[in-house]
């Protein structure tokens, strides 16, 4: 992929982030009535309302408010929480590691399980294996993740005792401990994505198998394993990567539920609490942070296309 193209994609990402920042900012402005009153709650004293109004700068002109906020964001200053009075940036960065670890682990589970199952099903179309995988995939998509999490915890943590039941262990407590705490929630979160990927991969592999270049490779004496490694995976990967990119946003949102079930205090928990407390600066920070992560992942997906498909490189 050419440098110019990377710059273009980066520019697109920045544009998206700016639009998100605009919407996030307007979130407060669009509160019907007096935002300060709403944020403070019905039982707040007049002094409290005034304090919030001043803290959020709601007494100043909208343009000025936006520019002040935007330049703050650009410097990494997302304001302060209305409740803890701590900087939003550090609050988010503190809550991010468990959530990101959970999301990444879920993606790893989804790719390993989903792509493997999908390739097997695609290669053995119509067989009992294919039917079994397709049925399991439907089941995986149908089961809500919180229920899967509860099921996994009660069987593998409470029943068999193989994994810890709750909470998150930072990496500083050892990689093994960190990983063992992540397994169950990552499987619970990644299962639906794995199922989605399996169905998609199956279709892509089945499609690639009908392509003339697969017959060409067979005519050169390729074994099935060779075909999969050299021709099928790479060609089937293009649409699969697209789906994976779309799913990451969903995974990030899905952490909210899993965190609640497994008792991890991460970004999801922070977001829920902030919404309940009407802690607008934190909500704004959370939305912006998630948008940035999704934009980044889409950039990576775009770059991956170029690596997988040489036609994109010159496009």
């Amino acid at each position: 992929m050419s440098g110019r193209m990377i710059v273009r994609r980066l520019g697109g990402g920045v544009l998206v982030l700016w639009l998100v920042s605009l919407v996030t900012f307007l979130m407060v402005q669009l509160i019907p009535g007096d935002p300060a009153q709403v944020i403070a709650g019905e039982n707040a004293s007049a002094a409290d309302v005034e304090r919030i109004r001043e803290r959020l700068g709601l007494d100043r002109p909208v343009i000025e408010q936006y520019l002040t906020w935007l330049f703050g964001v650009l410097r990494g200053d997302l304001g302060r929480s209305l409740f803890t009075d701590r900087p939003v940036t550090s609050t988010i960065l503190l809550a991010a590691p468990p959530t990101l670890a959970l999301a990444v682990a879920a993606i790893v589970v989804a790719v390993l399980v989903g792509v493997t199952a999908g390739v097997l099903a695609g290669l053995a179309q119509g067989s009992w294996l294919d039917r079994a995988i397709s049925s399991l995939a439907t089941l995986g998509i149908a089961m809500p993740s919180f229920w899967v999490a509860m099921l996994l915890v009660s069987v593998f943590a409470l029943g068999l005792g193989w994994f810890p039941a709750t909470s998150y262990a930072p990496m500083s407590r050892g990689l093994g401990t960190w990983a063992s705490h992540l397994v169950l929630p990552a499987v619970a979160l990644g299962l639906a994505t794995a199922a989605e990927l399996a169905r998609h991969t199956r279709g892509c592999v089945a499609d690639v198998l009908t392509r003339p270049y697969v017959r060409t490779a067979r005519a050169r004496g390729a074994t099935t394993g060779w075909l999969v490694r050299r021709h099928i995976l790479r060609n089937a990967a293009i649409p699969v990567v697209t789906v994976l990119g779309l799913q990451t946003g969903r995974l990030l949102g899905g952490t909210i539920v899993i965190e609640a079930v497994v008792g991890i205090s991460g970004l999801g928990t922070l977001a829920v609490n902030s919404v309940l407390q009407r802690d607008y600066p934190v909500i704004q920070g959370y939305v912006l942070f998630c948008a940035a992560v999704v934009v980044l992942i889409n950039l990576i997906v775009d770059l991956t296309y170029g690596w997988i498909n040489p036609k994109v490189r010159t496009a």
Binding site: A219, R220, P310
Partner: peptide, 24 residues
């Protein structure tokens, strides 16, 4: 059979564009 395919017997197919792997 695999030893014969691509070894002592080579094949040229009809549509070169679709018979070549686009990612290789």
């Amino acid at each position: 059979l695999r030893a014969v395919r691509g070894g002592p017997v080579g094949v040229v197919f009809q549509e070169p564009m679709s018979s070549l792997d686009p990612t290789m």
